[in-house]
């Protein structure tokens, strides 16, 4: 369970989030909102990439601002741009990079990396230069590199923004099948039909918090 308790956040004079309180227990939650609504900042607080300047976050009772390492072990994060989240030269090495501190042998790391790639349609790409993968494949690789750590929660910050329509659909369908709790930040409203809960943020506050249909209707009114 992810809890936001009276979250406020400001960059200098500029308030990005103001008194956000949420308890996320559902398995598939989406954050939507306009640019600058604070949704990405809120998502980053879940794994301690950004710490709130007011209030606190709890992930299963653990505060990422205090115990970042413990939380990051359980929360995976997929970013928008696959080119800057793939850190190693080949697909296999990139997945294995996540396992570097697990005390596994090199052979075991490689075996697990291969297994992960195979499960998400990248079988045989272990030695493939990561930068030569297609956009959709790169985002799958980023996902593999997170899932290999078997997190409880997966936060995705606009992971489909740079993908074509077909890859967007495939990626979200994949997310829906995962056993992890998913927090998806997105602009692609059409893909949220199967989500359990949609939180609409506007100027740093929660504007709507509901099932997808009513929440998105509220959002469409808000921006029109």
């Amino acid at each position: 369970m992810i809890e936001f308790e009276g979250i406020g956040h400001r960059y200098g004079e500029h308030a990005v989030l103001d008194d956000v309180t949420l308890r996320l227990t559902e398995q598939r939650v989406a954050f939507v909102g306009a640019n600058g609504s604070g949704k990405s900042t809120l998502a980053r607080m879940i794994n301690g990439l950004v710490h709130p300047t007011g209030g606190r976050v709890l992930v299963d009772g653990v505060d990422p601002a205090r115990q970042g390492r413990a939380v990051r072990n359980r929360v995976g994060f997929v970013f928008t741009n696959p080119d800057s989240q793939i850190v190693m030269p080949t697909a296999g090495e990139d997945v294995a990079f996540s396992l570097r501190k697990k005390g596994l042998s090199r052979a075991e790391r490689e075996r697990r990396a291969s297994g992960m790639l195979a499960r998400y349609g990248l079988a045989g790409y272990e030695e493939h230069p990561a930068h030569q993968l297609s956009g959709g494949q790169k985002q799958l690789l980023a996902l593999c590199s997170m899932l290999v750590l078997e997190p409880d929660v997966l936060v995705c910050d606009e992971p489909t923004t740079l993908l074509d329509l077909r890859n967007k659909r495939r990626f979200v369908e994949l997310l829906e099948q995962l056993p992890q709790q998913i927090v998806l930040v997105t602009h692609d409203l059409d893909l949220l039909g199967n989500f359990d809960r949609v939180v609409v943020l506007d100027e740093g506050r929660v504007a709507a918090d509901d099932l997808p249909e009513p929440a998105l209707e509220h959002y469409r009114k808000l921006i029109s």
């Binding site: 990439l49 990051r72 970013f79 080119d83 989240q85 990079f97």
Partner: peptide, 18 residues
């Protein structure tokens, strides 16, 4: 900008916790 994004990605993958 690429460096900033990579920094976040590395942090998310536990580099700060080494």
């Amino acid at each position: 900008r690429h460096a900033d994004e990579l920094g976040e990605a590395l942090a998310a993958r536990g580099v700060d916790d080494d």
